[in-house]
Amino acid sequence: MSNKESTSRTLFVALAVSLVASVFVAGSAVALKPVQIENRLLDKQRSILAIAGIGGDKLSSREVKDLFNSRIKARVVDLNTGEYNDSLDPVTFDPLKAAKDPKTSAALKGSEDLALIKRREQFTTVYMVEQNGQLESLILPIRGYGLWSTLHGFLAVKPDLNTVVGLGFYQHAETPGLGGEVDNPKWKAQWPGKTLFDDSGKPIIKIVKGGVDPASPDAGHQIDGLAGATLTSNGVDRLMQFWLGEQGFGPYLAKLRQQGA
């Protein structure tokens, strides 16, 4: 066999192996996609339950689903008007995907973009924790840029729409031990009971560099900054101001207050 034939055969075999491997990988990706989607949904439901204070890490997948379905009611909100939009299915609607589409989102410029997210979707999904038909807490999706990444999380508030139940981030890429301390239970434990708005409805919750003075009259709406992570702390502060303001859930919360929620 000539060297030319040998080389051709080697290339053919390599190409055939590569083709088979590509088909296998592509097939596996397609087959696993539903599982990945299901796992992401489960992680989000687990985060919502934990932030609402009605779930834990030890719950099985089935327990998470059952508890979520029995206690949580999801609805889609028009952030521009503050009204619910029942034409969109809160289970299948993807606010983050909508934020990337110019048809379903708006570009944010300059001082509008406190959270540094560039675009804000028109519609998003909120979650109501209910017990015997009574609202126990309202859970709002929030996100904003820290030092290295966009932090995605949820803020849970009491029915008075002013008192924090809990806050947590389910996805980010901040530095472990520094900005990653947003996951520290001790830091998150500061949030419950804090006040979000002043009497005029203006957001007053604030991340404080150096720590909160317990004797200060402002302590009720202040949170300790993350040690050594000023930019991440600033990012959390900005995203809170954004989502509680007019560009975020401001119109929606105003509607709820008018309705006596």
Rank of each mutant, 00 (worst) to 15 (best):
G250R: 03
P203F: 09
G225C: 08
W191Q: 13
R40E: 13
L226G: 09
D160H: 04
E136T: 13
V20F: 11
V182E: 07
G228C: 10
K186A: 09
N69T: 15
G225V: 11
L161G: 07
E174V: 13
E38K: 13
A189W: 05
G250D: 07
D218E: 15
K97P: 03
N184H: 08
K33N: 12
P141D: 02
E112A: 12
E38C: 10
I54R: 06
P90E: 02
K103I: 01
S111L: 10
D198Y: 09
A215H: 15
V13T: 04
W191S: 03
R71G: 06
L151H: 03
K118V: 11
S137P: 01
T232D: 05
D113I: 02
A21E: 08
R71L: 07
G166C: 08
L167P: 00
P34Q: 11
V76Y: 00
D86A: 02
F169Y: 15
L167S: 03
A156Y: 12
G235H: 04
M1L: 15
I207L: 15
T92A: 02
N234W: 03
K186Q: 08
G179I: 04
A99S: 09
Q222I: 13
L244W: 01
I37M: 14
L67P: 03
E181W: 01
S61N: 14
D199W: 04
R119M: 09
K194I: 07
G146C: 06
L231W: 06
A173E: 06
K209Y: 11
Q190N: 09
L67F: 01
L79P: 00
I207V: 12
L178K: 01
K65F: 10
P203D: 00
G193R: 07
A227G: 05
T150N: 13
L42V: 02
D237I: 09
L49F: 05
V129F: 14
I204G: 02
V30W: 15
S70V: 06
M1I: 11
K65R: 15
A21L: 08
V64P: 05
A14L: 14
Q131F: 13
P141V: 08
G177M: 02
Q190P: 01
F197V: 00
N162A: 10
K97C: 04
G180S: 02
K255W: 03
G260D: 11
N132A: 13
V76C: 00
L79N: 00
D101K: 01
L135V: 15
S2G: 14
Q134P: 00
A26H: 15
N132S: 14
K103C: 05
E83P: 10
L147T: 08
V126N: 00
S216Y: 07
I223M: 07
K73H: 10
L11D: 14
A229L: 04
W191H: 11
